[in-house]
């Protein structure tokens, strides 16, 4: 899917909003909590960055994302801040939602920090259930975030560490409340640890994660029968690498469930990510599902 940058809004020196539109037709619908992965050109390689969509679910004509410039720059956000221009075209994948709202919640408790505000902006637009939102910000970004937050007594902006009494907020919620946490790693961990200590069940604690089945460290695979040596990139599956070399490999589900893509292993240790092989089969180290599994060793040799 190709998207054109239609608008760039500077919200603060380090935070920009990008409005993206389709080249033709309508965009795929995306629910609150969905994120978009797109390719960002870099000096040495293409970066694949994930950003939460902040638009409401009716947004079929444009997507909006908010990007903080990461210091030290990891590439993607720096390019968006320094080089992106209106009219630039970016390649993106269909949005996915790993952070959906729980439909049966009696109340939603949203706790965010910094750029973690973004999925909750989408949440707030579709709320039909009572909610309470606490957002924490560094002082220099507070004006930008204050302008983004929806009005109302259920939303509080905290600009100093001390005004959010986490224990009190987590300890006084009505039964049936679901908790959503989004912010830097340390913030997420602190909140979750305290929630668990206060007896929140795991099924009512939700955090955003962009982890995708495809990602992981790059590795090398040797195909013994054809004598080929292939590099499996960080954002590529082993199956995709085989296909990219013009070799047809068996598959059905491409999600680690069906077992169709099992290939025999001659050397190396896989990192199994499928739902097919039993612990015993994994221990036998004789095969792997190439649609999802990767390598623990630098190389794998397949009898294929």
């Amino acid at each position: 899917m190709r998207l054109r940058i239609a608008e760039i809004t500077v919200l603060s020196p380090g935070i920009r909003k990008f409005t993206l539109e389709p080249l033709a037709g309508l965009l795929p619908a995306a629910g609150a909590g969905a994120h978009l992965v797109f390719d960002i050109p870099g000096a040495t390689r293409v970066h694949k960055n994930a950003y939460s969509l902040i638009g409401g679910p009716q947004a079929r004509t444009q997507y909006e994302i908010i990007v903080r410039r990461v210091e030290p720059s990891r590439g993607g956000s720096a390019w968006l801040h320094e080089h992106a221009r209106i009219g630039d075209i970016l390649e993106a994948k269909t949005p996915q939602n790993l952070f959906p709202l729980a439909h049966l919640a009696k109340k939603h408790l949203l706790l965010s920090a910094g750029i973690g505000i973004t999925p909750f902006l989408a949440f707030a637009r579709v709320m039909r259930t009572p909610f309470e939102w606490h957002h924490c910000s560094r002082a220099e970004d507070s004006a930008a975030f204050a302008a983004l937050l929806p009005p109302g007594p259920q939303v509080t902006l905290h600009t100093s560490r001390n005004t959010l009494n986490l224990a009190a907020v987590l300890g006084t919620q009505p039964l049936g409340t679901h908790l959503y946490v989004c912010g830097p790693e340390l913030f997420n961990e602190t909140v979750q640890t305290m929630a668990r200590a206060l007896g929140w069940p795991e099924s009512k604690i939700h955090t955003e994660s962009f982890a995708s089945a495809a990602g992981g460290a790059p590795f090398i695979v040797h195909l013994a029968r054809s004598g080929q040596r292939l590099e499996v990139a960080a954002d590529q599956t082993l199956l995709e690498a085989i296909e990219a070399a013009g070799i047809a490999a068996p598959y059905l589900c491409r999600g680690g469930a069906c077992g169709a893509c099992e290939l025999p292993l001659l050397q190396g240790t896989p990192e199994h990510r499928d739902h097919v092989l039993s612990p015993e089969q994994r221990a036998a180290n004789k095969s792997l599902m190439v649609c999802v599994s990767r390598a623990r060793t630098p190389d794998l040799v397949l009898d294929f």
């Binding site: 795929p28 269909t94 089945a213 999600g255 469930a257 739902h275």
Partner: peptide, 20 residues
């Protein structure tokens, strides 16, 4: 054959735009 556990694990990860 553990068919349903596998099928469920797969469906929980079903992606937008990729019906099966």
């Amino acid at each position: 054959a553990g068919v349903f556990d596998r099928a469920l694990a797969y469906l929980l990860r079903l992606q937008l735009g990729k019906p099966v």
